[in-house]
């Protein structure tokens, strides 16, 4: 096979696989968006007429509103919890050496290797036992704790990657200039890790917002959007669900785009410094 044919075949395979992957990843999402605009009460293809009637129906019956409120609350609190704890843990992972560090690393990373449903089940058992002793039943608080356990390993890894590229002589320079430990952290460390922390927070929000497995196990009688949709489609595919799905995509999409803009802005700054230093 000559050189040029080989290159061409490789290009077709490589570009083709990326294009195919993107189509594959968006099949269910675009299907839902398309069906949300159908006029029919049956979710079958081809879609005959387009209308907004199911959005109207959605806002008329409002069953989903409590679930929406719960999801927003859970996502907000879990994001805060897992971003702060994940950042602190990442600093300990990357910057410190201490006794039992391996143990600490193992327990903060292991949930990433657990299927979510098993995490949920294991925690449910514990919360039920605890609930018997302390007289409470699973609800939003247990969901938030569960999301924390599930999400912290992700935020930890994202912030740790940012710390990996961090030049710690900048901190020495600040100390040398007369900064206290707290001033070094606030003036230098935090601003420079900020892009990673923001990405971690966005990741945390989306993981919590779209989480089904753990919420399903730990929410007791409370409903979040994913569990609300699950119980809905288990009963039968009502055409309001595609509309609901499309609505939940919007805030997530806006958040991702905004976060990427921020990240790129910050990365440009830092990359330019590295660049000029090498020259």
């Amino acid at each position: 096979m000559d050189h040029r044919t080989e290159s061409r075949i490789a290009d077709v395979i490589l570009y083709g696989s990326v294009a195919a992957m993107l189509v594959f990843f968006y099949i269910p999402i675009l299907t839902l968006v398309a069906f949300s605009f159908t006029d029919s009460r049956f979710l079958s293809f081809p879609i005959e007429d387009f209308s907004l009637r199911w959005y109207g129906a959605l806002f008329e019956n409002r069953d989903f509103l409590p679930a929406l409120g719960n999801s927003a609350l859970v996502a907000a609190v879990s994001t805060l919890l897992s971003t702060i704890l994940g950042t602190a843990a990442a600093l300990a992972w990357m910057r410190f050496r201490f006794r039992f560090q391996r143990v600490f690393q193992a327990v903060t990373f292991a949930p990433l290797l657990f299927p979510q449903l098993l995490l949920g089940v294991v925690m449910l058992l514990w919360f039920s036992v605890l609930g018997n002793w302390l007289d409470f039943s699973p609800g939003l608080v247990t969901v938030i704790l569960g999301h924390g356990v599930y999400i912290i390993p992700f935020t930890l890894v994202i912030v740790a990657v940012q710390i990996h590229g961090f030049d710690d002589t900048l901190e020495d320079a600040a100390r040398d200039a007369g900064a206290t430990r707290w001033q070094v952290f606030r003036e230098i460390t935090l601003p420079l890790l900020w892009p990673g922390i923001v990405s971690a927070a966005v990741f945390a929000f989306l993981l919590s917002w779209g989480n089904f497995y753990i919420s399903y196990s730990l929410s007791g009688t409370a409903r979040t959007l994913p569990t609300f949709v699950f119980s809905g489609i288990a009963v039968g595919s009502s055409p309001i669900y595609p509309a609901l799905a499309t609505l939940t995509f919007v805030p997530a999409l806006l958040l991702v785009v905004a976060a990427d803009g921020f990240r790129r802005h910050a990365a440009k700054r830092n990359r330019m410094v590295l660049h000029t230093e090498e020259n």
């Binding site: 030049d167 002589t169 020495d172 040398d176 700054r269 410094v273």
Partner: peptide
Amino acid sequence: VPPSQRPTRMVFQKLALFPH
């Protein structure tokens, strides 16, 4: 005595200018 309390200042090999 920590660096901040000393009458010395350092110029770093890689300069350590704060990029932000």
